[in-house]
Design a protein around this nucleic acid. Structure first.
Length: 260
DNA sequence: ATGGTTGGCATCCAA
């Protein structure tokens, strides 16, 4: 089973890229972030034509998450959750579904703008609530995959210039501690099961030729619960779509699991 | 220190 994550930065604009990439990579499950679409405008028909069914939780202009599953695998979505229980939040940033034998939680983590900003406080609070939610999810569903745009670079290997970034947004110790609280629950960064070197990134700013110079961050992650860790066969970052014309600023990440 | 690029939507906010 191949499971992928991609922040598409507007699904409306990126549908040609997404359908091309689905045809190339043929993932079984794909978590999307920043769809920026109301549910009524979700491109159900285009994705069905590409061979994928979808669940989605969107809003106008901002945020928005979706999970796709290959139609020909006989997979269906069960126990869909679009909100953290008890958290009244209009921002569409979380979507969970059971697909086959795997529980999938798609996250579009708050960016936070800058350390000390009110959005930063919201980010840390949101991550606390996500941690509590995931503690319950992993208890109910040991075969748990938590993936998405985490807007946190786990450590300095995941930052092109750690001195310049320092303890700024996406790299600050409280953000990294919030991510570590998730990995400490037995949610393993799949990429680091296979690669220890730095310099592998999933996001590059649109400005200043950042992609060409590989000035990026690795902030798109696929975390695997203990019960799935030994099933992992590969974890990859596909830089190809970032080279295409009018790309998302993020590129897809994928894990291959040795399960049906 | 500042600004640069993109998307959505309306000429500003978010990333």
């Amino acid at each position: 089973m191949k499971i992928a994550s991609w922040n598409v930065n507007s699904l409306k604009v990126r549908i040609p890229h997404l359908t091309q990439w689905l045809a190339d990579a043929r993932p079984d499950v794909v978590a999307l972030q920043e769809t920026k679409l109301e549910d009524a405008k979700f491109p159900v028909d285009e994705l069905a034509a590409a061979g994928y069914q979808a669940v989605y939780a969107g809003q106008k202009t901002y945020n928005g998450v979706a999970i796709l599953a290959r139609s020909d695998q006989g997979l269906s979505f069960a126990d869909v959750v679009t909100d953290i229980p008890g958290l009244d939040d209009p921002q569409r940033r979380i979507l969970a579904a059971t697909i086959g034998s795997v529980r999938v939680v798609d996250l579009y983590v708050v960016n936070g703008k800058a350390v000390g900003d009110e959005k930063y406080a919201y980010k840390l609070h949101w991550l606390e609530r996500v941690r509590d939610f995931l503690a319950e999810e992993i208890r109910r569903h040991p075969r748990l995959v938590v993936l998405g745009d985490f807007n946190i670079a786990p450590d300095d290997r995941d930052v092109h210039d750690p001195v310049a970034w320092g303890e700024d947004i996406l790299c600050s110790p409280p953000e990294r501690a919030a991510l570590k609280a998730l990995t400490d629950m037995g949610l393993h960064d799949s990429f680091r099961l296979f690669e220890q070197a730095g310099g592998h990134f999933s996001w590059w700013d649109y400005r200043q030729g950042a992609f060409r110079r590989n000035n990026g961050l690795r902030i798109d992650l696929i975390l695997l619960g203990d019960a799935l860790k030994s099933s992992a066969r590969a974890a990859t970052i596909d830089r190809e779509p970032r080279r295409w014309e009018r790309p998302s600023d993020h590129t897809p990440v994928m894990v291959e699991l040795d399960i049906e």
